[in-house]
Design a protein around this nucleic acid. Structure first.
Lengths: 215, 215
DNA sequence: CTTGGTTTGTGAAACCTTTCACAAGGGTAG
DNA sequence: CTACCCTTGTGAAAGGTTTCACAAACCAAG
């Protein structure tokens, strides 16, 4: 089993876990790979392959114990604990994140927020005091933040990411539309809305071209 | 050339285009595949392969004309025009989107906003009147919105997506943490922040396990 | 015109992911 | 215990994407 696991596998594991939690809440005891596959658009074989990288969790003829698999996936994904986030940039996106209860509900707590804007510093947003950038390092250390969130303008995103790494975070979630390069093995995920929209734009134009070229 | 183009190729094309626009603004005339590759973390061969699916845009020995390639990529990606977005759900994320100038700047204009909250309906957010869900169909038709944006709670996301499809949008951008299934060939992209964070959680835990297992 | 330096466009090879298909194992009913 | 039905776990095959490597083409200099 276990070698290097692909991003797409990890992504699917998260989706399986989501569904399993629903099933657990619903009181279901066992689930088959095909039931598990449906909501994420995967196949049953893919579910089994994905899980097989980490061990053998099912019972032949029965399926998987819902509770057992929830615990196993939580352990694999590192979700049996909660994580502390440090947010840099309390603008539109930053504020939206602070107000989004879904994060804390899933074990991601924002424990510190930073901004350069003098007018914001010292004020509170959703119960969190906004701090100046100069406090980045000590506050991240003191609060033990493990994940840095970059919600700044594009121009400073790379610099902020570097500072976060220096401050000791182990991973970065980036909302600026720029491809940040991973250094020191600190993984970075970028959420790039414009990129997603451009992907849709391509598909819609494609369709037009396809239909148009037939005539 | 051109068959079915993979998502990752389209994604990279967007990144090339971004860089090319910067180069164009900087007044550069020609660019090589290796220069183009750098910021997106691709290789020069990959850049050439990606472009080769759509035609032959470069000059051997010289590279690509910056202006020419900008126009070609804009055409390929459907970005020589602008797109109209209809937003459903003016909560935290929805408001953040409305306030985010980056969208309009890149040719994605939000032309309609809907919500179920009586208190919000009729008020204006960033110059846009918030409308009741019952107006969805007529307003989308009237304003000619092509892309629907789902920024609602998870529970209603699937239903809203279906309504948007019915109302005639050609693509959907979904912010609810749920995998929506494409129907009628209307493509859907989901931006799922929790999924990204869980991916980072996996990587950080992996690292711990790797280091720990050696001792 | 010829030579040399550069860069594209592209088959072929290498690599990675997904799907197939089936033996092995487990549960249940009689 | 036997017979039958299910579902897992997994090698092997298929399918896709990325990298390699090189001929073809272009430019500039002499």
């Amino acid at each position: 089993m276990s070698g290097r696991i692909s991003d797409s596998t990890v992504r699917r594991l998260s989706l399986y876990l989501r569904m399993l939690r629903d099933l657990e809440r619903a009181g279901l005891e066992f689930v088959s790979s095909s039931q598990l596959a449906e909501p994420s658009g995967a196949t049953s074989a893919q579910v089994r392959k994905d899980l097989s990288h980490f061990g053998s969790f099912g019972k032949r003829g029965r399926g998987y114990s819902v509770e057992g698999l929830v615990r196993a996936l939580e352990k694999i994904l590192g979700l049996s604990r909660s994580w502390r986030l440090a947010l840099v940039g309390v603008g539109k996106i930053g504020s939206a994140l602070l107000g989004y209860g879904g994060l804390a509900a899933r074990g991601f707590d924002v424990v510190a927020a930073f901004d350069v804007d003098e007018a914001k510093i010292g004020t509170r947003a959703h119960g969190l005091r906004i701090r100046p950038m100069t406090d980045l390092r000590p506050v991240i250390a003191e609060r033990g933040a493990e994940i840095g969130v970059v919600a700044t303008p594009t121009e400073v995103a790379a610099e902020i990411a570097a500072e976060l790494e220096h401050a000791g975070v182990g991973a970065i979630l980036n909302f600026a539309p720029i491809e940040l390069s991973e250094v020191n093995g600190v993984p970075i995920r970028t959420v790039d809305i414009v990129l997603e929209l451009e992907g849709l734009s391509y598909l819609m134009s494609e369709e037009g071209r396809r239909a148009g070229s037939g005539a």
